[in-house]
Amino acid sequence: MLTVESLAVRYGDMEVIHGASFDVGQGDSVAIIGANGAGKTTLLRTLMGLHRNFDGRITFLGKDIGHMSPWERATLGMAMVPEGRRVFPDLSVEQNLLIGAYSQRDRSTVRASIEEVYGLFPILRERRHQVGKTLSGGEQQMLAIGRALMARPRLLLVDEVSTGLMPIFVDKAFQVLRDLIERGVSVLLVEQNARKALATAARGYVLETGRIVLSGTADELAANADVRKAYLGA
């Protein structure tokens, strides 16, 4: 579904990702774990088309998407839960969700998606007329997840779903991701919380200062001595 080959990403003259290659299959779930500053957010932004200074090949659904704008990628079926939530501060909860479904033309599908999101996060229904910036951090994260679900994506890119959430919401957020994966949506998540990420995804990669240093199934990684020491605190 998504294939990334020798991806090198730069900010100006500084290269921050050095030739990363990985793939996400149809219905696959992949976690990229790494410490702060490893380049995880940059990686996702490049995949979405928000960062364009790169070399290498990005293929999505058999198409080379490297030259495509973010909205073209969205229309192909990519959606993201961005770093820092990026909820639209002066749009209402419902309008935020409607933007999530912007590439969905069919009104009844959009209506059904909204109901689904409200079913998942009842607090969003209560707050549906409130503007984004008045929500708490946890509520904003739910909205960011809900907004991405509205797109009915084929591939969901998730950047640090757990940051800033209270523990019960962290579990909830990962539960939502697991449900999505079970429904056959392909998910690529980048996470500092390696334990949760490896418990959610089927496969994983370890990104260290811009290089992929390890890959394997989630179980293999979770059992790997280096991973346990560096990321699982064991």
């Binding site: 088309g49 704008s69 969205a74 639209f88 912007y102």
Partner: peptide
């Protein structure tokens, strides 16, 4: 209209708007 909503989203955060399929251009 959808267009009006797209304007507001673009105004507030054009990157995120673009990532959700708003043709910002």
């Amino acid at each position: 209209t959808r267009l009006g909503l797209a304007w507001k989203a673009t105004e507030q955060d054009f990157e995120t708007a673009a990532a959700f399929g708003v043709n910002v251009d």
